[in-house]
């Protein structure tokens, strides 16, 4: 059921067959079909080209296409695996697969590491951590003094950087997350399990080509 393929859809740039994507991700074919409905909505919000542009991503996250945000930028860059400035359907599904409740925890830990490794040096550095804390403070109503921010960052580094070389490597990150499992809670989107309920239109659409 729900296995509809249309000629129009196949012409979309970067379109990949749901069966292929389902085989490579925690999603079922029906869930990939439902994600395609969401993808169409997001990718045609500003420029109707079937690709998610950075502005469309920001618009979806913040209802505002001009609101730049450190996290949105990093997530966009990680989803844009080909680094061609847009997110294609296959990239969208594979990346969201990491956020599926059934995705391997190791994948979530690795994705979070890449997310926080702002400058992609292979390490999370103290300055990057501070930058993220300052960014979230800027986004929220939480006001902390410079001293308090320094204390929080120092304390975190003291615990996570077990080798004491001023940077957190993937192994140290893994250990740190195992001590604080709640740190990867934001790497799971429970909603992905109900995606077919949220976007069921593909189930009833017919194969008829106009």
């Amino acid at each position: 059921m729900g296995c509809v393929s249309s000629k129009r859809r196949k012409q979309e740039p970067g379109y990949e067959e749901p069966t292929v994507l389902a085989a490579e991700t925690p999603f079922t074919v029906s869930e990939v079909e439902a994600l395609h409905e969401l993808f169409k909505k997001l990718s045609n919000a500003i420029i109707a080209d079937g690709l998610i542009h950075r502005e469309e991503f920001q618009l979806a996250l913040f209802r505002n296409r001009n609101r730049r945000n450190l996290f949105a930028d990093r997530i966009f860059d990680l989803f844009d695996v080909k680094r061609n400035g847009v997110i294609e359907f296959g990239e969208f599904v594979r990346s969201l697969g990491v956020f599926h409740p059934n995705a391997p925890v190791a994948d979530k830990i690795a994705f979070a590491f890449r997310l926080y490794d702002l400058r992609q040096t292979g390490f999370i550095e103290r300055e990057e951590l501070k930058e993220m804390v300052l960014a979230l403070l800027h986004e929220s109503d939480l006001a902390l003094s410079e001293d308090v921010v320094e204390t929080i960052v120092d304390k975190t580094f003291g615990e996570a950087d077990t080798q004491g070389d001023g940077k957190i490597d993937p192994e140290e990150w893994k250990e740190f997350v195992s001590k604080h499992p709640s740190l990867i809670k934001n790497m799971t989107l429970p909603y992905l399990k109900d995606i077919t309920l949220a976007f069921p239109s593909f189930v009833v659409r017919s194969e008829v080509d106009e």
Binding site: A60, L61, Y116, L136, I152, E159, H180, L183
Partner: peptide
């Protein structure tokens, strides 16, 4: 209290570091 939290905890709990809005209709 934020001071007693570790920095990653603060970040991961932040709404601005969440993809939830992608699914809002």
């Amino acid at each position: 209290k934020p001071v007693s939290m570790n920095a990653f905890e603060l970040i991961s709990r932040s709404q601005s570091f969440s993809l939830d809005n992608l699914f809002e209709k």
